[in-house]
Simulated assay, not measured.
Amino acid sequence: MKKLKKTYFLFIVAISSLLINTSCNSNDDNDTVPLADTFYIKFKANDVQQNFTDLAIINSLSKAIVGNDENQTKTVVITVPLNVTAGTYTITDEPSNVNSYGILYSSDSESISTINATGTLVITEVNDNKIKGTFNFTAENAESGPSTITVVEGEFNVEN
């Protein structure tokens, strides 16, 4: 089961990196607000602040909200149902369940790849333009870094 979860996570990361590199590199000269100033995912992982502004939304069987750091060495993936609504949800580790709410975090530099995450995801706002909310979770690490990853003060504001 761990191999299936890691394969699913790596698939999401690969697809999101491809989409981010091909769709977020345009630079319009109009007066619009840059994506980095409006949309974000941020949190503290084991007391270290993480800020992600390189974002992508992947709509497939479920919605994957993907964030990468500027060096593309750290990734967070928040999964929610396609028809997400405001509310408080339990984070589960069921990547094959398209109606579940989940979070995966990985960091190549820290040898982190989370599995078995448990916690809370609160969706505070959903409209045609954005999805906003908060999250906190604890997860096991499948790599050689720290054995437990604690994520607190999680916030996101992403384009829908």
Score class of each variant (00 low, 15 high):
I91H: 15
T134W: 00
T138E: 14
T134F: 03
F135K: 09
K132P: 03
I103E: 12
T53A: 03
I149G: 03
V98K: 11
V122N: 06
K74Y: 00
T134Y: 02
T92Q: 15
A86Y: 01
K44C: 04
V66W: 01
N129P: 00
V98R: 04
D128C: 01
V126R: 06
V84M: 12
P81M: 12
S62Y: 12
S100Q: 03
S109M: 09
N129D: 13
Y105C: 02
N129T: 09
K44V: 03
T118R: 15
I78C: 10
V84F: 09
A86T: 14
I115W: 04
V122Q: 07
T73I: 00
V98C: 01
S106R: 14
D93R: 06
T85E: 15
L55C: 13
E140Y: 01
G87F: 04
N46Y: 10
D69K: 02
T75N: 13
S113H: 08
T114S: 12
I112L: 08
S147C: 02
D93V: 12
V66Y: 02
S107W: 11
E125K: 15
I57V: 08
N129W: 04
D93N: 15
T118M: 14
S147P: 09
D128Y: 04
T138V: 13
E70P: 00
L121S: 08
T120F: 02
I91A: 15
S107V: 11
D54I: 11
I131T: 12
Y101C: 07
A139D: 05
N127W: 03
E125C: 07
S109T: 14
N46S: 08
N129R: 03
F135G: 08
V126W: 04
P146E: 14
E143T: 00
T92D: 11
S113Q: 13
I112K: 06
Q49D: 15
D128R: 02
Q49C: 05
N127R: 04
S60P: 00
S106F: 04
D47M: 02
V66I: 09
E125D: 15
A45Y: 02
N141T: 10
T79D: 05
